[in-house]
């Protein structure tokens, strides 16, 4: 079991403290929700932990390995992936190509293998099979050959989750995975996330929907003005008046 952690993490944008001396540990597996009002620093914290933003001070670790200065792709290669608040997909590629893109350590991504096709066909067949399996699990198998841009918003949310699964990452950050999604699909996504956690993955998600947080999170971290103001089980945290006040504003 590895633990994702950060110590004395700090990030300022101009004069605004987006993340202020945060210390956290995220042991695997489980589901952790990060909540807080807009501008609380939730997405900045995720961006720092996944390497997309450099912290001004402090350290991030994956197990014993320091990841503070690593590029995002190196952190992803260590088994930490993410989705984004704004949907990010290869819109002009098919659904299955999007999922196959996300597969890790592909031989065919090497120049000489790509040119001379050494072992690529076999790998592609197996990669395609895996991708179809993931799409089937997410009920997207009838959209396999559709362009990503042709999917509905909810289906695109599912596809971005499929990409995270295809990376085989053990730690998955999701930024508002159920925002703007109809209740039926929300229930499906939450049940999928629960299933992933039961299969040993650590899910960390930023979310405004407190009902969703109550339903699946094992742990809730509440942030406000760049600081962690509460951290604990949903039942212990979410009823506190000061949390509700900070959250509702």
């Amino acid at each position: 079991m590895r633990t994702l952690s950060c110590k004395q993490l700090r990030k300022c944008f101009g004069g605004i403290r987006a993340v202020a001396d945060i210390e956290l540990e995220f042991p695997e597996p489980g589901i952790t929700a990060i909540i807080g009002p807009n501008g609380a620093g939730k997405t900045t914290l995720v961006n720092i932990l996944t390497g997309f933003v450099r912290a001004d001070a402090g350290h991030c670790y994956l197990g014993k390995r320091e990841t503070t200065q690593l590029a995002p792709h190196r952190i992803a290669q260590l088994g930490v992936t993410r989705s984004f608040q704004e949907l990010r997909l290869v819109q002009q590629a098919s659904v299955i190509d999007n999922v196959m893109l996300a597969r890790p350590r592909q031989l065919g991504e090497r120049l000489w293998r790509a040119l001379f096709r050494v072992g690529v066909a076999v790998e592609e067949t197996s990669s395609r099979r895996e991708a179809i399996g993931i799409l089937h699990a997410l009920d997207l198998d009838d959209k396999t050959h559709a362009l990503a841009s042709e999917l509905s918003y909810g289906q695109q949310k599912l596809l971005s989750l499929a990409l995270c699964l295809a990376t085989e990452a053990r730690i998955i950050f999701l930024d508002e995975p159920v925002s703007g999604v109809h209740p039926e699909l929300t229930a499906r996504i939450l049940s999928l996330l629960r299933g992933l956690a039961e299969n040993g993955k650590l899910i960390i998600f930023v979310e405004h929907d407190l009902a969703a947080v109550r339903e699946i999170a094992d742990r809730v971290i509440v942030m406000d003005e760049g600081q962690v103001i509460a951290d604990g089980a949903p039942a212990d945290v979410l009823h506190r008046p000061e949390i509700l006040e900070a959250y509702v504003g």
Partner: peptide
């Protein structure tokens, strides 16, 4: 090839490509 698939991802959204572990 898969190499081209990554190039197309880089063309459309290099942030996504990085999040998926592509250099």
């Amino acid at each position: 090839s898969p190499f081209g698939r990554v190039l197309h991802a880089v063309r459309e959204d290099d942030v996504l490509a990085m999040a998926l572990g592509k250099n």
